[in-house]
Design a protein around this nucleic acid. Structure first.
Lengths: 237, 237
DNA sequence: ATGCAATATTTGTCTAGACGTCTATACATA
DNA sequence: TATGTATAGACGTCTAGACAAATATTGCAT
């Protein structure tokens, strides 16, 4: 490897690795060579390699995990739609850090649509949760969830604390629940959703409507979710 | 200085400097201590100090300039309104990197308002420029400018190349021009403007309408500008 | 085959030093 | 006065080495 003067070596290494990734030498999800391997390849000090990798981490091109190595960051998360798929499991299964932020919540009276999905009488009080799901700080989806207020009184505080609906349901004695139906379509986001997703208003989102039921088949949640189509791909098998 | 175990020293230094800044020990625009001074203060190696500073640069809290030092990033730019004040001069005078990005441009027929300000007959062709002004990559203002198309044919290309209206005017023989009037008010931004300014839609902007004239007093530009009120303060003296 | 403990691998942090690059300042010169 | 030069100060890059922390692998005992 020979270095062109005028540009720091770590920037040239960054450039080289970036073009390797662009060329598919390292595909998304792949493990990158270890620091020591890169040291041998480029013939520089380990710190110089680390400086280049830090730049790639900054731009979210790679992800580094202590003890495991560096991986090319998948820009698109495969989100399998199954009866038992849980957001946090999917994200942490990909070695990324899940987070679910509650934006707002309130108790409202169910309209005919919501009541229908939840098997309630229209006018019954339901809890509305508005939240953003993130992986490594990057927003992937914004969701509006409706839960029967009678059955889940006080669930908002538990959700805030655990940041997980699955966990919150457990506190209400529901150890097991499953997805009954998911409807999928594509729309343009409202400006509020676009800004929460940190994406342009003219980029489409995948919108889903879903119903979750408990072990007895009783609806416990109706939700609409807007997935960033640039960062998430839904998988049905 | 004593270090609590479990948290890396550079992170503790970052935290300390951050709270110094929050406490006003170092005010926005102030020069931070030099790396060597911080080395003596914290009793660590220079690289450790640099690691902490790099984190502060990443979060846009400080700005480092080779050969000069590190400075607390000013969140508010003072923008003096004068006959000869030029955006790029003001920004680079604060040791920040100015940039003016052309978003779109087209030739339209002047309506009564624009024609009136430019001393043209309604229906005359004018060039419309829509641009974003940035300092260190942070957007400060979005501007719509109208110029007589007849007098400034081809100015768009020059503006794209030089990123400066002042420079573009020079190519048309106008070495000197000045601000005739500036009207100032406050509004809420359109969603397009808010997104270009990378600020929330509910944060107000300072909107100005301005007329620039050449040395002979002939109008050469009518513009409306929306300044981010969180980052810019207009100064009239 | 399974589970656990020891070992190896890999990334993270800190120190030390050398030299390069950019800026500001003082000074000499024209 | 203006300009160029020398120098000092400050940040940028690169190398070298040691140890810590997290993870993966190996091998042993059951």
């Amino acid at each position: 490897m020979d270095w062109e003067p005028g540009l720091s070596i770590w920037k040239q290494i960054e450039k080289q690795l970036l073009s390797d990734i662009a060329d598919g030498v390292f595909a998304p999800g792949d493990k990158m060579p270890t620091e020591m391997e890169l040291v041998r390849r480029f013939g520089v000090n380990r710190h110089t390699v680390r400086r280049a990798m830090a730049a790639l981490v900054d731009t979210n091109v790679v992800r580094v995990e202590q003890g495991r190595g560096a991986f090319v960051q998948e820009q698109i998360l495969d989100y399998p739609l199954g009866a038992k798929t849980r957001f946090s499991q999917i994200v942490s299964g990909r070695h990324r850090l899940p987070d679910k932020r509650l934006v707002s919540s309130e108790v409202i009276k169910a309209n005919a649509t919501i009541a229908g999905y939840l098997d309630l009488k229209p006018g019954t009080r339901v809890i509305e949760l508005f939240s953003v799901s993130e992986a490594d700080g990057v927003p992937l989806a914004v969701a509006t969830s409706y839960l029967p207020a009678g059955r889940f009184d006080g669930i908002v505080e538990i959700f805030k604390e655990t940041k997980s609906l699955t966990e919150a349901f457990k506190r209400f004695g529901i150890d097991d629940y499953s997805r009954k139906t998911t409807r999928i379509s594509a729309t343009l986001p409202s400006s509020r959703v676009a800004s929460l997703l940190k994406q342009a208003k003219n980029r489409p989102v995948i919108s889903t409507e879903s119903i979750d039921v408990d072990a007895d088949g009783v609806p416990i949640e109706f939700g609409t979710t807007a997935f960033s189509s640039d960062r998430v791909q839904l998988i049905v098998e």
